[in-house]
């Protein structure tokens, strides 16, 4: 701290001193915050051990990995796997499907829990509010296998409840699950059904943090319901929304493997094949470790690029950003 006064006076030595003071500054800063570091240490060790060390395994994307030669002795092939992937006829199909599903998610699935929380927050009757809340969060506890099963029970052509209902009403049955036009929308609807209620938890926790006095003061000032929502409630959760939005953008290449895998069938495969199902087929089912790692790596790189961009834009517009 006292070095700050020192280096302003001697301009010639400035560069040198700054460097030294930086060093000393780092050391004293570290020392000052030692307990803070101790607090974060278990987490840091965790990330090193379970994330960064295993990352070295990504090298196999540039090799022909063979388990019995090990990572080091396997044949080095450079970008061969990437070339094979990009020159694959299906690459554009996979890209199109992945992006379409992600964008639909971003458009409908992402804002839904926010709207739901705002609406729930407006309910005056606390019993009703709690009942609804307790109902909508339930589907989150179902794994995709269960959800897929329920979807078949509801929508299948021969015995789906919805189709039975259509029949009773004298309408023709609809093959919801084999229609490639509505497949993406069906996935989005599934995701909304499963996760919307759960998504509200985090927003409602943040909304609960709003000082009730603020809202009362606004009412006294004559602010209407929507203005209060806009000016008081929304800003309270803006930070969280931003973080989630940036992360969502970064995961645009991920489409939730299990959901797509369980819902796909021959009639819709043209619109349902995504990077994740492709990685599973080539990696787990066909044992092409290196190739599937290369595809995964490509996905991650795109994700990083998108997140950096989103973060930059967020900051540009005066928001917090993630890092």
């Amino acid at each position: 701290m006292n070095t700050k006064d020192g280096n302003a006076s001697v301009p010639i030595l400035e560069a040198h001193t700054t460097k030294r003071s930086l060093h000393r500054g780092v050391w004293s800063d570290l020392k000052r915050d030692k307990y803070l570091y101790v607090l974060g240490l278990p987490g840091i060790i965790y990330f090193l051990l379970f994330k960064y060390i295993p990352f070295s395994g990504l090298i196999i994307a540039f090799e022909n990995y063979s388990p019995y030669l090990g990572i080091l002795k396997s044949q080095w092939v450079g970008f061969e796997h990437f070339q094979r992937f990009f020159s694959n006829d299906d690459f554009y199909l996979l890209l199109r499907n992945t992006l379409a599903i992600s964008l639909l998610n971003l458009l409908f699935f992402f804002p839904f829990p926010i709207i739901l929380s705002l609406l729930l927050n407006e309910v005056r009757n606390s019993v009703y509010k709690r009942v609804i809340q307790s109902i909508v969060y339930i589907p989150h506890f179902f794994s995709w296998v269960i959800i897929a099963g329920l979807t078949y029970l509801m929508l299948s052509q021969s015995e789906g409840l919805v189709n039975e209902l259509l029949e009773v009403l004298g309408m023709a049955k609809i093959g919801f699950l084999t229609n490639s036009n509505s497949f993406w929308m069906m996935l989005t609807a599934q995701s909304m059904w499963k996760e919307a209620g759960w998504g509200t938890i985090i927003f409602l926790a943040a909304i609960a943090g709003v000082d009730p006095q603020l809202s009362e003061a606004a009412t006294v000032d004559g602010a209407g319901r929507f203005r209060k929502m806009w000016h008081i409630t929304l800003p309270a959760i803006r930070n969280i929304i931003m973080i989630l939005l940036i992360l969502q953008l970064g995961s645009i290449m991920d489409t939730g493997f299990e959901q797509v895998y369980l819902m796909t069938n021959g009639a819709v495969s043209e619109v349902s094949d995504v990077f994740d199902t492709y990685v599973y087929r080539s990696g787990i089912q066909q044992g092409q470790f290196s190739y599937s790692t290369a595809v995964g790596l490509f996905k991650s790189v795109v994700g990083v690029a998108l997140i950096c961009m989103a973060n930059f834009l967020a900051k540009r517009f005066g928001q917090e950003g993630v890092f």
Binding site: D33, K51, L247, V322, F323
Partner: peptide, 29 residues
């Protein structure tokens, strides 16, 4: 860890945040 990272005076805060963010995007094999 989050509390540590939330203190703005912390050295290496940004790089640490970035490194943690990377782990969301890259799945280790």
């Amino acid at each position: 860890l989050s509390y540590m990272l939330s203190r703005k005076r912390l050295r290496f805060r940004r790089p640490l945040m970035f490194l943690i963010l990377l782990t969301i995007l890259f799945q280790p094999g």
